[in-house]
Design a protein around this nucleic acid. Structure first.
Lengths: 171, 171
DNA sequence: GGATTTTATTCAGGTTACCTGACTATCTTT
DNA sequence: AAAGATAGTCAGGTAACCTGAATAAAATCC
């Protein structure tokens, strides 16, 4: 049973981290001229990321992969189409399906967004980076367990997405 | 200059952490019967937290404190009123102002939400908890710098909120 | 092989967290 | 008292989601 005080310390720092990070995100969000917005794994960004892993899949597959409703997926895809980041075309094999493909601009945006290293990691020493990585690995697997206990289907999807997402991360 | 590989490792774990945590949050969000939703420092929750630190302040003060527009603040307050978590009353000193107060239910909800320790911290040893706390402290101050460079006013507000928020954390 | 069911997508409408603009009521300053 | 500044409201908008109902195409059933 770990020390409760230490747990509370860590918990408060972690919550602070969440709040401050959120603040920083909003800051960039509100000043899009200065820096770019940070990557967030949601909405249109989610679609872009999924497509950069596996391009030319159907809307349904996207929805399943990302655990989104078909309707939300359609919405995000349509927004990306008007931004010129993806294209939609009817499948010739099964004309119910719509195949979504990244455009050049979309691909660029996806890779640029997802492979960014947050600046704040610059303040950590090599030793701290290792510690941080180890700790996060433990925390992440604990959360995976939590997901798995609750909804093993969601667990599988999440793991798959993460695995695919980080497959290209190094190289 | 820290090792780039180590940075990438840490960055990917951190991004994974964000994604998985988001997944867990949504999981609880979609099954509100099972567990409670996790704390998030936004919207109505933000108001509740601020009030639990300083009850009976005006809507304007809330907005300033939380760096929200007056209109958003009004919206959240009204939603909380209909949930019976806060009350609104016209100030007698300055009848332009509306004083917002927590009800018993509101206070309960606020403290319950904010003082929760995430389960995943249970998997860390005492040593890891210390390491994690140190690392997060460094990261947080780095982000404060980033905020300060961009918008020193926002920086002050954020620091103040955080300070007040965590003042009661260890009671 | 025509009727039924399933599947992929769309449309309409709803929620929460935000925002900006325009307007009212009240207080302060000149 | 007139002009200005403040606190708050109303209307309307965006992004990320969701559910329900409708449509079109494919698959399955008898």
């Amino acid at each position: 049973m770990p020390n409760l005080i230490k747990q509370k310390n860590a918990a408060s720092k972690l919550m602070e981290f969440g709040i401050v990070r959120h603040t920083v995100d909003n800051m960039y969000h509100r000043n899009p001229d200065q820096g770019e917005r940070r990557f967030q794994f949601q909405g249109q960004g989610k679609i872009l990321i999924a497509l950069s892993q596996e391009d030319g899949i159907s809307q349904k597959e996207l929805a399943t992969k990302l655990d989104l409703s078909a309707q939300s997926t359609a919405e995000f895809v349509n927004k990306l189409v008007s931004k010129g980041f993806v294209t939609k075309e009817k499948s010739t094999i099964d004309r119910r399906m719509t195949i979504i493909k990244l455009t050049e601009a979309g691909r660029e945006s996806a890779t640029k967004e997802s492979q960014k290293i947050p600046e704040f990691l610059n303040v950590l020493t090599d030793e701290e980076l290792d510690q941080f990585t180890n700790i996060l690995t433990k925390i992440n697997s604990s959360m995976y367990n939590e997901i798995n206990e609750n909804n093993s289907n969601l667990f599988k999807k999440t793991q798959k997405t993460i695995k695919e997402h980080f497959r290209d991360w190094f190289m």
